[in-house]
C-alpha cells in the first residue's frame, strides 16, 4: 500500500520536473520511480498505514485545518508588521517564555503543532522536550492564549485532525 503511494508521489514529481511527455522520458520516469520506491518505500509513509478511507478523511480534516491556519497567518503577519512599523516598538513588546504540557501522543502531531505555533500571532516554539513545549511569546496577549491549563484552541484542532479528538 505504501509502495503504491510512494510510486505515485515520485512519478508525479518526475512529470512536473521533466515537463516532457514522450515515451522515452516517461519510461525513464517509471524506471527511476520504481527504483526509488523499491529502495525506500517505508520512509515516506510509515509502515503501519491505516485504511485508505481513514487516510482520506484525515487529509480532508487537514485541509479544513489549513483554512483555519491561513487566517491565523494573515493575522500574525499584520500583527508583526504593525509592531515593526510602529513608532516605538519597544513600548509594545513584552517578551516572555512560557511552558505548557501537551496531550498529543504522536511525533507528527507534535511537529504540526510546533510549526503552527510558529506561524500564529506572536509565538515561536523554542524547544520540545518529550511532551513539554517551550514557547517564546512577544507580547503578554499572545502568551495568554497558550498559557492556560486547558488545551488551547490550536491544540484541540491538531488533536481533532490527527487523533480523533473532539473540536
Amino acid at each position: 500500500m505504501s509502495a503504491i503511494f510512494t510510486f505515485g508521489v515520485m512519478f508525479g514529481f518526475w512529470i512536473v520536473f521533466s515537463g516532457k511527455f514522450d515515451i522515452f522520458h516517461l519510461g525513464m520516469g517509471v524506471l527511476s520511480s520504481a527504483l526509488v520506491t523499491w529502495l525506500s518505500h517505508d520512509l515516506l509513509f510509515d509502515g503501519h498505514t491505516k485504511k485508505l478511507r481513514a487516510t482520506l478523511i484525515q487529509i480532508a480534516c487537514f485541509i479544513r485545518y489549513m483554512a483555519w491556519l491561513s487566517r491565523q497567518i494573515i493575522v500574525a503577519n499584520i500583527h508583526i508588521a504593525g509592531l515593526a512599523l510602529s513608532l516605538h516598538p519597544t513600548k509594545h513588546l513584552d517578551p516572555r517564555l512560557i511552558r505548557f504540557k501537551t496531550s498529543l501522543k504522536t511525533e507528527f502531531a507534535r511537529f504540526v503543532l510546533a510549526n503552527s505555533i510558529t506561524l500564529t500571532p506572536g509565538t515561536v516554539t523554542v524547544r520540545i522536550k518529550d511532551d513539554v513545549f517551550y514557547v517564546h511569546a512577544i507580547t503578554a496577549q499572545s502568551a495568554g492564549d497558550l498559557a492556560g491549563r486547558t488545551p488551547s484552541e490550536m491544540e484541540r484542532w491538531v488533536a481533532w485532525v490527527f487523533e480523533g479528538g473532539t473540536l
Binding site: I73, N77, H79, I80, L83, T118, L119, V124, H136
Partner: peptide
Amino acid sequence: VHAAGKGDTL
C-alpha cells in the same frame, strides 16, 4: 526571530 519567521511566509 519573530519578525523573520512570520513576515516572510505571507
